[in-house]
């Protein structure tokens, strides 16, 4: 799970005719490790296919443009007038950039309320998941107690259950507690994560026992061993857990839709979805709002790209 961030790439990464240092720096920037001292023959063989690399760039860049296009289009529309958005021949560049559409998001929509809700649920859930899952993951990996494997099995069994199988009943519980339309109701089931427990247990189980033993011989108690020795070692996995939790809490739609009935009480994900069902659609403002809603997570992703990609790809779950 905790993969090293720098991964040995295939040898022969060096393009021909470039000074070695320059290449190595660029590779280092990309987070890859160049292999110095690759035999010249091999270098030539690999690097010799520059023609095919051109083709690769053409294909990848075209595909990349298709991937990015909806975002760019959204940006263009968010700066247009409603008439430009709805003109039959598409306006690829608005006559005038209307930044006031972004101000309108805050004036005309309950955007700030929704943003506050989104931030709250994301923060509360992430902190709670880290707390509960780390503690439980450690207990399941390293402590001995009766019923451990049974309890672990029960917790992990939830991973195979689709959320519909508990949603109706979760709703009843939250309703019974009088928490509909509150942040409490929005976060409640999501405070606990079977996936996070699985993630943390795997990480702790892979750590060497000797460290713990040594600390214990020095008179550390269970809490000190956990807090001072094991937790710092688990930091990379905790960051994977944090990333998955943030993404999921920020983007999730079904649960917020179910437990909140006024748009002022919804997080952004649900709030945006109800926005379009209104008949009076001011497209530019809707586009600006959705870009703003996505922005924090996309920014986080661009900053932490490698960690997010590797974390999500290795966990296999969103």
């Amino acid at each position: 799970m905790a993969e090293p961030t720098t991964r040995q790439t295939r040898p022969g990464v060096l393009p021909v005719g470039e000074p070695l240092t320059a290449v190595r720096t660029r590779a280092a920037v990309r987070g890859e490790r160049a292999t110095p001292g690759v035999p010249a023959a091999r270098r030539r063989r690999r690097g010799g296919r520059h023609g095919s690399h051109v083709l690769a760039h053409v294909v990848l860049a075209t595909g990349g443009f298709v991937m990015a296009f909806p975002f760019l289009w959204q940006l263009v529309m968010s700066l247009s007038t409603n008439a430009e958005v709805q003109s039959v021949t598409p306006t690829f560049w608005p006559a005038e950039l209307r930044w006031e559409n972004y101000a309108a998001v805050f004036d005309r929509l309950p955007f700030l309320d929704q943003l506050r809700t989104s931030v709250s649920i994301t923060a509360i859930r992430t902190i709670a998941q880290i707390l509960f899952c780390t503690l439980a993951g450690y207990a399941f990996a390293r402590m001995r107690f009766r019923g451990r494997s049974l309890l672990l099995g029960l917790v992990l069994s939830i991973l195979m259950v689709p959320s519909q199988a508990y949603l109706l009943s979760q709703y009843q519980i939250v309703q019974g507690l009088g928490l509909l339309n509150t942040v409490g109701g929005l976060v409640l089931p999501g405070l606990f994560s079977a996936f996070g427990t699985f993630l943390m247990r795997t990480a702790f189980a892979a750590m060497p026992e000797e460290l713990e033993e040594a600390a214990r011989l020095d008179g550390a108690d269970q809490w000190q061993v956990f807090w001072k020795i094991m937790l710092p070692l688990a930091r990379p996995t905790i960051s994977v857990l944090a990333i998955t939790s943030v993404l999921w809490s920020w983007n999730e739609l079904l649960w917020p839709l179910v437990v909140s009935s006024y748009s002022e009480r919804m997080p952004l994900s649900a709030g945006l979805a109800t926005l379009i069902s209104d008949r009076t659609t001011d497209y530019p403002v809707v586009m600006a709002a959705s870009l703003l809603a996505m922005a924090p997570v996309l920014l986080l992703f661009v900053v932490l790209q490698r960690r997010v990609i590797d974390g999500l790809a290795s966990s296999g779950l969103k």
Binding site: A68, P70, F71, N251, Y283, V286, A293
Partner: peptide
């Protein structure tokens, strides 16, 4: 990063642009 972008983007937010 480019190809991964849609995967992390909020589904309801990207849905807006696809509707148009």
């Amino acid at each position: 990063v480019l190809y991964f972008l849609p995967y992390v983007a909020m589904p309801t937010a990207v849905a807006m642009v696809w509707r148009v």
